[in-house]
Amino acid sequence: MTATTPMERARGANVGSGFWGRTSVRVTVVLIAALWSFPTVGLLISSIRSPNDIRGSGWWTTILHPFETTWTLANYTDVLSANGMFNAFMNSLIVSIPATIIPITLAAFAAYAFAWMRFPGRGVLFAVVVGLLVVPLQMALVPLLQAYNGLGMTGTFLGIWLAHTGFGLPLAIYLLYNYISQLPKDLFESAFIDGATHFTAFLRLVLPLSVPALASFAIFQFLWVWNDLLVALVFLGTDSEVAILTARLNELVGSRGEDWHLLTAGAFVTMLLPLGVFLALQRFFVRGLLAGSVKG
């Protein structure tokens, strides 16, 4: 299936036509990348300056005059040494990992069924699923919390996994459907001739072939869950036993936001893991998974 194309890398340099084409591509790419990272660089630099310096001069002045500012790691030590940080980090992991994998699993099954199986109401159901993307989260919280109380699910990890799953499913199904439905038809035909059921076809063909789509959705869902504050506060609470990282960080800045410089360091601390997930999963965005099969 995963026929590698040896020519791939060799052709890599083949961007644009000729030297000028290649150069202009590179310049554009660098330009956009620079534009996009400027604000973040500002945040990074600010996170290692003292609060007075942050407010006293623009962050870019430190690049021109690196010795005129007080560099300090105090913002980071303040954030990392705060009480309950380790617990909060572990809780975030406990919440995020199942809340990423469960929706992907369910969505992959559903997307496959919508794309390749026949059952009554398929088109309507699919339209409804996608339409649910637009339901605002805030409107859903109160009825769900009422139901959770009845079921005794408030404050449990199961409750928050399922909540994140429910909220993430429409996007997951939509994105995965978009990918899975475009897999070549002949793949399935030959598999079924070989006696595969839909279940085995799903496990052995579709899942491996959909790795790029699965990986990209995993990235987004993980990010979303990891950075979520509202759902966690409502369904999980802030009791230090279960409080997650964002809730803990949010408290650090004080009731009136007086320690807002800690936000700079806090933002980077929370960013590290999602960034790692992105880098790790990025290698699944590979060409050639479908090599040899022309699209149907």
Binding site: G12, V15, V25, W36, T40, S46, N227, T264, A267, T270
Partner: peptide, 26 residues
Amino acid sequence: RLRREALAKTFIFLPLAISMVGAAVI
């Protein structure tokens, strides 16, 4: 098809990883 594709994409991806409070400060 750039050789440093992963790196270049990371720059564009970066904003997604930042929480909303972080983005507000940025």
